[in-house]
Write a protein that binds this DNA or RNA. Structure first.
Lengths: 152, 152
DNA sequence: AGATATTGCTTGCTTTGTTAATCAAATTTA
DNA sequence: TAAATTTGATTAACAAAGCAAGCAATATCT
């Protein structure tokens, strides 16, 4: 048995651990966003779905899931409630009847419009504090990171 | 009522949205880590708790929660099972009996030691593919980001 | 001191994450 | 064409996240 006081070969400082650093950074960025969404009818995930639909137009669920970083089972449930709330609608793809095409509806667009200004203000504030170049640089690095194919 | 087809003032493209980019990047990085932890007695969250305790020593739950990016309710439940498994122990703070001080135990240190080498290998592999300078640069940018004090 | 507010943690409840199983429609193979 | 495989989506089951409420110990105020 080992001794709790023994000096252990330390891993990287947690600030320098990429997974933890990514998580902490995300908390910082999402804090204000979560507050913004707190008194709105959508949470973080639904907001992402609306954003993806706004950006990419009507599309199937696989596509939404990938872009919004949601698994299909989660998305199924989320879309069910969003459909009940009239934020989106679903229709069967006539070309391929396995697919259902999801489209954003008026109520969904309303939310994006109501909160869009606040969301933009948050980004502006953040870029100002953080620095525009650093901000872009960070996005570039993150984009590159996503392209990596790490061993499975 | 608004029209679903109306052109909307778009927010940033979602691949240039920092919260989403952080999320996607984290997915990429965590894939191999999750696999490494799959056949170990701890999951991702417990691993983070162990890392924080290793780095910061015995500390109260608020402190752990902040550093490991966990909410207190989640941490309460996680620590309960970790305590049952003998990975950590809790004792009441004699100065302030509301607080409980959490300490890592031998079994917890064992896990860190057993998996530490694998974890380090994953980092090495990733740095090689991504590039060392970029890797450090990214960590610097993320560390700066964590220091930001965004408006509440 | 006594009342009030704050802090640290826990519990309850709902939503989401995660994996595996299922099903129907489409595609590939034989 | 029939059988086998793949694909898109849903369901089921359980762990974990997230939020609100609650409780006990401490700090603050009057």
């Amino acid at each position: 048995m080992s001794d709790p006081e023994r000096p252990n070969p330390p891993l990287r400082r947690t600030n320098r651990s990429l997974p933890i650093a990514l998580l902490r950074a995300r908390e910082v960025v999402m804090g204000p966003v979560r507050e913004m969404l707190a008194d709105s009818p959508v949470n973080e995930q639904k907001w992402r779905v609306l954003r993806v639909l706004q950006e990419g137009g009507a599309q199937d669920q696989n596509s939404i899931a990938q872009q919004a970083c949601l698994l299909l089972p989660s998305l199924t449930r989320i879309l069910r409630t969003m459909e009940n709330d009239g934020l989106v609608s679903r229709r069967e793809d006539p070309q391929d009847r396995r697919r259902s095409i999801v489209q954003i509806e008026a109520a969904g667009l309303d939310i994006l419009e109501q909160r869009g200004a606040q969301a933009a203000a948050l980004v502006t504030d953040m870029r100002a504090q953080y620095g525009d170049e650093k901000f872009e640089q960070l996005l570039d690095l993150l984009e590159d990171l996503q392209k990596l194919n790490l061993k499975r």
